[in-house]
Amino acid sequence: MSDRITPEAVAKVAKLARLSLSDDELLHATHQLSDMLDHFADIDALDLDGVTPMTHPTPIANVMREDIEMDCLDRDEVLAAAPAAEDGRFRVPPIIGLDD
């Protein structure tokens, strides 16, 4: 396997994505991500001077809508689908501590 990414870096990305990985899963993900980075290295090896980086697969630009109001979702129906609600609002656990 290549070592284009370290298990530590993968663990950091997993934490940022709120994914909890076992040691085995971490190793597995490290292998997979390294393989992907190998593919990108193949592209890097090409001479791409003068090629504009492509950010979108289509050349379309300026897809916009007019500033016109449309119907909203029904609040009661939406909140009924939420894990918890109170006073017409979504109820969520305390926010501080999410990063720990």
Binding site: R65, I68, E69, M70, C72, L73, R75, V78, L79, D87, G88, R89, F90
Partner: peptide, 19 residues
């Protein structure tokens, strides 16, 4: 296309994109 309006009842200006 939900309204951009200050002071409305909570969660009345919501749609699938907003949520």
């Amino acid at each position: 296309a939900s309204p951009n309006r200050f002071g409305d009842e909570p969660n009345t200006n919501i749609d699938p994109v907003t949520l």
